[in-house]
Design a protein around this nucleic acid. Structure first.
Length: 484
RNA sequence: GGGGCUAUGUGCUAACCUGGUAUGCUACCGCGUUCGGGACGCGGUGGUCUGGGUUCAAAUCCCGGUAGCCCCA
């Protein structure tokens, strides 16, 4: 494809979606896209990784209905206010107009918590940690973009209940740890976790914490967020337990929402290069593609036979491999599979067949870096080279992310940082709506920058630091970036 | 939320201004030759987003709808 990702991200993004077969954007409903096999296979692997992490940390799967009666949806005041403008409604079934409208879930609090009220009676029922992998619908009014912001997206939502605030806060920390373990360590996507300002919380939450990553065009993209819901929903949905003293108490709740379809968009945007996708070894639909070299001077039959022998060897060890024996020329196949981000290519011609060897090329290797090894050592080498490729992707992504963090004390410095595509750390007056939102509005208006929040565990600025905008004493270091 | 641009076969595109048989590449199908970095020859299938209007005649001009892209807030 040969489009410079960092200079022309939008064009790169659209081209790779179509050329690598990730999605088809021609479905005729605005903001809805068709996810094609190549992206779905990776997303299923990502779902599996995330679900394994959730279950290892005590979550159990469930599946709740996609439709929510309007009366349930309206039970928690702030939540309704926040989400109502984004809801798709079902008003008719067959030829009958429904007596009560049904919301297509934009998120599932109001579907799940009425059931939680039935399930939770006492301490023995706590903690309750449930997740579901599903799709949700939001009538987005901002410009939609496939994977990043569509009106239907695929995610996991975990909804947890605890007896105490302390446990709930502990869950928020655990959600951040899971994000680090999966999104950063496994998917290789760097991010910073921010506590969102009071004016930018999840509707109905006490606190919202969200991971922001950085796209090649210098805009941040919100990845998983976790919310301390306090007892707001519990009181509204009547989710109470009987405590040690025999008294009824509302449960403390958290919810956590990694959007797999969006994280996948971040994954290929962060790791891709000018030749196409570059996928981490564990999340590639095909980890190894075997390209047989046939033709004159080659014993075609022997080459194909050997290629299939190698394939069987790899499959037997659980490596996702395939032989590309279509009639195209090898050069065409090299480009095709590079575009698709397959981590390892094996070339097999007459020479390899005869010597029982394989020639390996890694997706991220410089041109003409090939390595010929024996079949017997192939599994070991492929596994270690695959892991090394994933590590290189992580290191490269970290380096890029790290080099796009900046600091500023003045509006001019902030402007310069934003224009370089950085996430900029500034001293800031307040995260409270009444005191701090005015400055955020001005920064947005003047510099097209968004105050994303404060870093979860960062110390307050030293005495004497003043807000980048209003010059009042700074209570926090805030992070400002252009956003999707 | 505001503004701009666009829609022709799978994709890209010519014809649009100035209305009159829709061009080329790619992909796809068939046959043959090819194959260690995007092969080639010959033959073939397939198209003007949608609804209305103007006109003898609409891909082309006008109005609405739908969808996409870009810019600004």
């Amino acid at each position: 494809m040969d489009i410079d990702k960092n200079k022309n991200f939008s064009e790169w993004f659209n081209t790779i979606i179509s050329d690598a077969g990730l999605a088809d954007l021609r479905y005729n409903v605005k903001g809805f896209v068709v996810f094609r096999p190549w992206s779905v296979k990776s997303m299923k692997l990502m779902y599996a990784a995330y679900e394994a992490e959730l279950e290892a940390r005590g979550h159990s799967p469930a599946l709740f209905p996609a439709l929510i009666p309007e009366q349930n949806f309206k039970i928690e005041g702030e939540h309704v206010e926040g989400f109502t403008p984004q809801v798709f409604w079902v008003e008719q079934a067959g030829g009958n107009k429904l007596e009560e409208r049904l919301a297509m879930r934009p998120t599932s609090e109001t579907a799940m918590y009425q059931m939680y009220a039935l399930w939770i009676q006492g301490l023995a029922d706590l903690p309750l940690k449930i997740y579901q992998s599903c799709q949700v619908w939001r009538y987005e009014t901002k410009a939609t973009k496939p994977f990043f912001r569509s009106r239907e997206f695929h995610w996991i939502e975990a909804h947890d209940c605890f007896a105490t605030e302390k446990e709930a806060r502990g869950q928020v920390r655990e959600d951040m740890e899971m994000t680090e373990a999966v999104v950063h360590q496994q998917f290789g996507i760097p991010f910073l976790f921010f506590q969102r300002p009071e004016w930018d919380k999840f509707p109905g939450a006490v606190h919202t914490y969200a991971a922001d990553t950085l796209m090649p065009d210098g805009r941040v993209l919100q990845l998983p967020s976790t919310h301390l819901l306090g007892t707001n929903f519990a009181k509204a949905f009547n989710v109470y337990y009987q405590d040690e003293k025999g008294e009824k108490s509302p449960v403390w709740q958290t919810c956590y929402g990694p959007a797999i379809s969006r994280i996948y968009g971040a994954l290929f945007s962060v790791h891709g290069d000018n030749k196409g996708l570059v996928l981490p070894f564990d999340f590639a639909p095909v980890q190894v593609v075997i390209v047989p070299i046939l033709g004159k001077g080659q014993d075609g039959e022997a080459v194909l036979k050997y290629a299939n022998e190698v394939l069987a060897h790899l499959l037997h060890d659980g490596i996702r491999a395939k032989v590309d024996s279509t009639p195209s020329t090898p050069g065409f196949k090299y480009n095709h599979w590079e575009m698709h981000g397959v981590p390892v290519r094996i070339e097999i011609g007459g020479r390899e067949a005869e010597a029982k060897q394989i020639t390996l090329v890694m997706r991220d290797a410089p041109p003409k870096t090939k390595k010929t090894i024996s079949l017997t050592e192939s599994i070991m080498v492929i596994r270690s080279e695959g892991a090394a490729l994933s590590s290189r992707l992580l290191a490269k992504a970290d380096a890029y992310f790290g080099s796009h963090l900046a600091q500023a004390k003045t509006m001019d410095e902030l402007k310069a940082g934003l224009e370089k595509g950085c996430i900029v750390r500034v001293p800031y007056c307040s995260m409270e709506k009444t005191e701090g939102k005015g400055c955020a509005d001005e920064i947005k208006a003047q510099l097209v920058g968004d105050v994303r929040g404060i870093k979860y565990d960062e110390k307050a600025p030293a005495h004497g630091e003043t807000c980048v905008y209003c010059q009042k004493p700074a209570q926090h270091f805030a992070y400002v970036a252009r956003q999707y």
